[in-house]
Amino acid sequence: MELTIALGIGVLFGSGVWLVLRPRSFQVLTGLLLMSYAVNLFIFVMGGLWVDKPPLTLAEDVDPAAYTDPLPQALVLTAIVIGFATTALYLVLMIGSRGVTGTDHVDGQEPDQ
């Protein structure tokens, strides 16, 4: 499973990087989304992979070894929500810039050919 998730993160990140380097604003937006998945997962797995050990301390005596690490989860949870907000901001900039400049190139003008 470690290898699977590590490869998955790598593929997501690589696709994200490729898209971020593209010239069209929608490509960059998509790339940012993919990169944020990869980075969120990366932070998340830093706590280790645990199956069926959610951090819900419902038992009487809490044995820390029986639960996954809650800290990366808390960090990633806020990151997901913030990620939504930044996506929205980028989207609005993207369509606003297109309206003002008439192009969807990230630099606001078509490259000189």
Partner: peptide, 15 residues
């Protein structure tokens, strides 16, 4: 590809 591979290696190494 490099960036993706690097992140894979790091994740795997840490795990």
């Amino acid at each position: 590809a490099t960036a993706g591979t690097l992140l894979t290696v790091i994740s795997y190494g840490v795990l």
